[in-house]
């Protein structure tokens, strides 16, 4: 493993001078993020009609609730904003469209499959990991159930089976990685009637997204959500309205693991700071070997040890 010098300085800064370390670490190597095999999904929210068929497809593909399609045709659910749950890896929400009150904006949410995910960096046993194609997948067998992944996810995506006393799992979209291996599309993309979901290589999708914006400047705002957010995500979004107004979070461009990993790398990959501390303490132990004496409780006296 290459020595991460920045990370080393990071920990030194954090450990020695409070004033020096007042800036959060930026993504150390943006270049590492781009994986040519990285898959992606482009969601064109202007094409989404809010039919909830993706929710149905996801439910079927992942054996979640097993409800019939009719259960997903209930449009009353749009009356309040929903979030994913341990039984729903994707949900569609409706947001007002100021330009046409009769034609609301629908936004599908699911795991964004970050290029540098917080969850995989947080998981202490590697139960969550980034696959070769960029899909963030979960291995329940390894999982401890500490739920640190839920803390670490900037999109608040991983969900947990709190009701299960024995084998609770972290639940989230895994990009239908088993279907992909069989050569199929992710279930939601396959089902989507207006094909508002386009599956493909992330690189190609980004090109397509920018081309769409360029050729329809009236239709789209000039921002591909997920291109740069938290170091880039595999799921990309096009929209007609500012993303912050349709349930998206305003996030910076640095990947969240860049805030912790440099420190970890410095400690584990290098091992220098702990060893240095060890040596320093040993030296002190030696230096101060002629310290003061044991004072019997009977002979209490006041001296200033810090002097």
């Amino acid at each position: 493993m290459k020595l991460n010098r920045r990370g080393f300085f990071q920990v030194m800064a954090a450990g020695t001078a409070t004033a020096l370390a007042s800036q959060p670490a930026q993504a150390s190597d943006q270049a590492q993020a781009s994986n040519p095999n990285s898959i992606g999904m482009l969601v064109d929210t202007t094409e989404c009609i809010g039919c909830r068929k993706c929710e149905f497809a996801c439910d079927m593909a992942n054996n979640l609730t097993g409800q019939p399609v009719k259960a997903f045709e209930d449009m009353k659910v749009y009356d309040r904003e929903r979030r994913m749950s341990e039984n729903a890896f994707t949900v569609v929400n409706r947001y007002a469209n100021p330009e046409d009150s009769n034609r609301p904006i629908y936004v599908k949410s699911q795991c964004m499959h970050c290029l540098k995910p917080g969850c995989t960096s947080a998981c202490l046993v590697g139960a969550l990991r980034v696959g070769d194609n960029g899909a963030v997948v979960y291995d329940a067998w390894k999982c401890l159930g500490c739920r640190y992944c839920m803390v670490a996810c900037p999109f608040q995506v991983p969900m947990y089976e709190y009701d299960d006393p024995l084998t609770p799992r972290v639940r989230k979209c895994e990009f239908c990685h088993t279907r992909l291996e069989e050569g199929k599309l992710p279930a939601c993309a396959e089902m989507c009637p207006p094909m508002a979901l386009t599956f493909g290589s992330r690189e190609e999708l980004l090109k397509l997204a920018h081309k769409k914006i360029e050729s329809n400047p009236d239709r789209y705002i000039d921002h591909v959500y997920g291109e740069k957010e938290v170091g880039g995500t595999s799921w990309l979004y096009l929209a007609s309205r500012e993303f912050e107004k349709t349930g998206f979070l305003k996030l910076g461009e640095g990947a969240v693991p860049s805030l912790t990993e440099p420190i970890q790398h410095a400690i584990f990959k290098l091992g220098l700071p702990p060893l240095a501390l060890y040596g320093l303490l040993g030296a002190m132990m030696w230096t101060y070997r002629n310290g003061d004496e044991y004072i019997d409780p009977g002979e209490s006296e006041e001296t200033d040890p810090s002097a």
């Binding site: 482009l42 009609i49 599309l185 396959e190 009637p193 207006p194 094909m195 397509l208």
Partner: peptide, 19 residues
């Protein structure tokens, strides 16, 4: 067909119809 991986901007027949 379902969709065209060579031309991602061109939706498949289902998408074309629905759109």
């Amino acid at each position: 067909g379902p969709s065209n991986p060579a031309n991602l901007g061109q939706p498949g027949l289902k998408g074309a119809y629905h759109r």
